[in-house]
Amino acid sequence: MKKKIHRRYLAEFVARVLMIGSFALVALILGLILWTLIQKGLPSLTWEMVSQTPKGGFYLGKEGGILNAILGSLYMAGGGTLIALIFSLPIAIYLNTYLGSSRWGNYVRLVLDILWGIPSIVYGAFGFIIMLSMGMRASLLGGTITLTLLALPIMTRAMDEVIRRMPTDLSEAALALGSTRLEIALRVTLPQMLPGILTAVLLAFGRVIGDAASVLFTAGYTDNIPTTLFRPVASLPLAVFFQLGTPFPEVQQRAYASALILTILVLILSIGSRLISSRLNKYTIK
């Protein structure tokens, strides 16, 4: 009997070691990724990189920077996120103030989750088909629209989760005082979920700005900064990809630096959304 208890404690101990081990492994991988990027990317990360467009012979290792890609990514991801916000805010509000957890509400949530799961390459192919049928070429507009589709489910579901966590007492109190659902949505839910909206927007922006597969088809690539909606536009992830594809070490070095820039951008967005939501949460009723 004694031995058996001993064995049970041994199993407990081994399990515990394994768990802490895998926990450490996950943390270690993240550290390794960041360290590799910094070590490889930092040496060639210069001011020139972020402030200039590619000059002649840039892809052979000559002068220039990736300002075209940085601006292109910001344009497309910014535009896409803003357009997606116009649609996702009403959907999130409608899901919660009008539908609650009714059958249609859960159905819409299911569809949003499915949309979230569709890979970006399929969005890219879909955007490409749409553009072909409209006679459009790879352009800033095409990329922005595709990124809008990509951002919509992410943003809506993130907002939905935030509103769901809101105490129902507030809207019940407003209902009892005779408010209509629209008034609850505009005067109770909206101010309450403001931090959540910001978090969701930044989350979607961060996801969308790093996506390469969808803009590959729809936005094209160019060395210039786009001046109209109908011109091709460069993007950061594709800048990394194309520079890495060249056989020249100098250009590959720049690809690492571009990857570092992209990662820093995304990390700022991720950490920023966390900070903003914890700051602004002070002003909402718990």
Partner: peptide, 12 residues
């Protein structure tokens, strides 16, 4: 953060 890192960066 791990979830936010873009796939191109994972590729690099």
């Amino acid at each position: 953060v791990l979830a936010a890192i873009p796939s191109v960066v994972y590729g690099v």
